[in-house]
Amino acid sequence: MDSYQATAALEWWANTSLCLGGYEVLVTVRVTGDDWACEAVFGPEPLSDEDREGFDFLMDLDPVFTLRFHEGSEILVDVRRTGDAGRLVLTAFEASESLSSEALAMAAEVGAALRAARPGGGSAAPRG
């Protein structure tokens, strides 16, 4: 098998119970010898302006997302934008690139603000 394509979700988790963003993507993995490359595009629909703004904010905060496939498997990935609008390059996350405590504190504050801004003060779905 030289390539694999599937739908998945890119999720940005502030902690084990608070997901600040989830985005549907079409993932393509290509294998060449011992190397692999993974790209994703938003879909099936393009992101709304509001979703794009949220995604850009999370990318600027920290580009580490959980890539969750619909059959249940998941992997932490670093996300990098390419020159093509909506096209992303995904690489396996290296633990040495972990978030600083300052970034984690900021993420918690953002999460609290987002929860408070939701109608009825709703909360994000727990991570399963």
Rank of each mutant, 00 (worst) to 15 (best):
A125R: 09
P119T: 06
L99M: 15
S96F: 02
S98D: 10
E50M: 03
N15E: 12
A8S: 05
A105H: 06
L47M: 08
G120N: 01
S48T: 14
R80L: 12
S96R: 14
W36A: 15
L76S: 07
L26I: 10
A108H: 11
R81N: 03
Q5H: 07
G111K: 13
E11R: 07
G54E: 13
G86A: 03
L114A: 09
F57S: 14
T91S: 12
T82C: 00
S3F: 15
L58I: 07
D34P: 07
R87G: 00
A103L: 10
V64G: 00
R115V: 15
N15F: 11
D34C: 00
M59D: 02
V29M: 14
F65E: 05
V25M: 08
L90N: 03
M59Y: 02
E94P: 01
R30N: 14
G128V: 11
G83H: 00
L67F: 01
V27Q: 07
R30K: 11
W36Q: 13
E97Q: 12
A105F: 05
T66Q: 02
D84I: 02
D49A: 15
D35R: 11
H70R: 02
R87K: 15
D84R: 15
E71V: 04
R81A: 01
L88E: 02
D60L: 03
A108F: 02
R30M: 13
G111C: 14
D35V: 10
C19N: 06
G72S: 09
V27F: 10
L67P: 10
V79P: 00
E39W: 05
F42H: 15
G21P: 06
